[in-house]
Design a protein around this nucleic acid. Sequence first.
DNA 1: CCCCAGGAGACTC
DNA 2: GAGTCTCATGGG
Length: 275
Amino acid sequence: MDYQIMDDSTVRVRCDVDLKSTFECGQCFRFDNDGIGYTGVAFGKAVRFVQGNGYIDICNTDEKDATGIWGPFLNVDFDYSRVTGAFPDDEYLKQAAEYSRGLHILKQDVLETVISFIISSNNNIKRIKGIIQRFCELYGKPVIFENQTLYTFPDAEDLKSVTFEGVSGLRAGFRDRYIMDAVDRIRSGNLNLDELVSLPTSEARNRLMEIKGVGLKVADCILLFGLGRYEVFPKDVWIKRVLSEIYGTEDDNGMFGDYGGIVQQYLFNFRRNGG
DNA sequence: CCCCAGGAGACTC
DNA sequence: GAGTCTCATGGG
């Protein structure tokens, strides 16, 4: 992929990423539009992505992180044109894909997706963001970006200081004990997130579902957004509506193939925004 | 007052 | 194995 150094803290990458659809489609809860670009913290570093015509400017970074962290995070190398090409007669999917043009599946940190999607259960995106923000302020590390204090998502080391008293102050509701169960399993070694990378999808899913508060839907979101399993098709309330209203079925049953998860994001994004 | 939110667990049958 | 209830919080 084509990276170009613009100045001492900005690297430009040529790609078809659309930041708005990518960061406002409910896959990621830690990046917001600040009027200049989409700013947030991931992998312990603050960054701002600025939309260009056929490129993204990655700000507050260097060449090493741009190519090693942020390019992969934005999934700039993935060719999305082949995703919907296999379904030329699906008019609704064609509309959804057009509406979602430039929507990339982010390659997020696995621990962050585990905690975030536990919090997402029976919840709305606005409140999910607030709970995650408070979790990061409480247990993450401060990062200064343009005179603003942002916070990292807690890493494995930070999890050692997590207590139930702290978690129950996040206003997460009934999810507090689920968050705590995930933290306990991860820091005790009962669940090794690094190990999931090498497991087949069904086995990784089963391991994730041992966590209290992780059912099929949450596990599938972790698999898709954290572990890059693009064939996985998470079924939430919005997608169930699409399956029922458009396709006349309850179960996708793998009908969208190896990149079903990306199709799922197109459909979710389109339907949730009125399509 | 109601219903809903990127669901899951416990319980019943 | 399929229904039903409940769970805590905030927005519309």
